[in-house]
Design a protein around this nucleic acid. Structure first.
Lengths: 232, 232
DNA sequence: GTGACAGTTTGTCCAAGCGCAAACTCTACG
DNA sequence: CGTAGAGTTTGCGCTTGGACAAACTGTCAC
């Protein structure tokens, strides 16, 4: 493994507040690891012995219910810190993270966290903001699940995917990683059948274009209208 | 307002890691304020100029949707820190907090936070743990809303209420503050009608006992069985 | 090239639970 | 002590969306 360069962290908001020297200290403790598509980065319930920053690729974070049902908690995009269980005082990961495409991440041993924070207090603040942001997002989702019908939830989920990981293509914006109807269903608390029906209906109206593990949104504005219109 | 005594914070986990002297520093910046039943402590969207610790009473934290629907995010119990928007880098409160019974809280100006953290780094860690715990709880709720039917969600919600704010009474455990069917509905993403029906059914089975703004659980174990049994 | 399979589409049926409506009952206040 | 109003209960019809089923179609491995 070659030495890690400072510039790697340029695109990582969590470290934005650090000085050059501090970044060197932080990087000195990290390794970079490849996670080929389909690989598991960490497993729900497993000992939280590392934390990460995603450099390339995309990860899916999934929570498994006792009954065996899966819920997609979120997708990790490049530049994000993830697997931050130590930071919040947990011994184990609350969910499973797997690569949905070939990915590359920086990895720190959890044991490094206390020393890093001691040397760079700004890190604690970063972590607090990250967790706070996720808390907000989680609450928004709770509100959606509690008050909106399925179609609007799917519209919201899709818009968020575009915002996070949208890629311009010829006739619209597509989700930049392979995603199935089932995945969308697990994000919105519904079934893949219903998602399929909804997407088909939208396709008929020219709002989106489907494909195998692929969703292209042709009319984001139209989608937005669906997402925001109470009781269509 | 009389001087605040150290012992006030004995029952506040957020400050458990602080030394006696640090606690004095922290308390020096606080005032205590009374919030009579029905009062609003802070409002969704309002400038986040304070943070709090609840000493007595109970608060309800509610999020309002653009369409005007309410969702109960959580109840604050004595000893908890709340209104921690500054800590996570927000300018405004993401929800509204109101007293569901006469309450008493310590109040700090948001501006005090940076200096407090500077003098007591353990505070940053505390805050991180608090927010982390809430994030976990929010995710559990997302999973429940996404995968469980209404009856089980209500059972889970009720069990959580008991755990947080349960009070032993003659023939069971009751929620220690006034709570309506509507409140429960807003916690579980359903309607007060459905909650009423469910509680009535449970009452018939001897699991709970209802009352105006009152819920007594006679058989917590039975409730637990409902909560955990997939597809009754 | 072809088979196997994962992912998708679509149809039919059905039940959970919501909307609407009306009656009932505490409780607080005058 | 009576009345107003908030909170609760219950009935009924209907819609949303889940369950089940079956056919279809890219894609990858051999």
């Amino acid at each position: 493994m070659s030495a890690l360069d400072r510039s790697i962290l340029d695109a990582v908001p969590a470290f934005a507040a650090l000085t050059g020297k501090e970044i060197d200290i932080v990087l000195a403790q990290a390794k970079s690891l490849r996670y080929p598509k389909g690989t598991t980065v960490f497993e729900q319930g497993g000992a939280a012995d590392s934390f990460f920053v995603l450099l390339h690729g995309h990860l899916q974070v999934v929570k498994l219910t006792p009954a065996g049902q899966q819920v997609v908690i979120r997708y990790v995009v490049p530049g994000e810190m993830f697997g931050i269980a130590v930071q919040i005082g947990r011994q184990s990961y609350p969910a499973t993270a797997q690569a949905v495409m070939d990915s590359l991440a920086l990895v720190w041993p959890s044991s490094a966290w206390p020393t890093l924070v001691a040397r760079c207090p700004a890190l604690a603040e970063s972590a607090l903001h990250i967790v706070g942001t996720r808390l907000d997002e989680a609450h928004v989702r709770v509100v959606e699940l509690a008050t909106e019908e399925v179609e609007r939830r799917v519209a919201h989920a899709l818009l968020r995917l575009l915002k996070q990981a949208g890629r311009k293509v010829d006739d619209g914006i597509e989700v930049a990683f392979p995603i199935t109807r089932e995945d969308v269903a697990q994000m919105t608390g519904t079934t893949l059948h219903t998602v399929s029906r909804i997407l088909s209906a939208w396709e008929t109206r020219g709002l989106v274009e489907g494909g195998r593990q692929r969703i292209v949104v042709r009319d984001p504005h139209g989608l937005f209208a669906i997402a925001e219109t109470p009781k269509a």
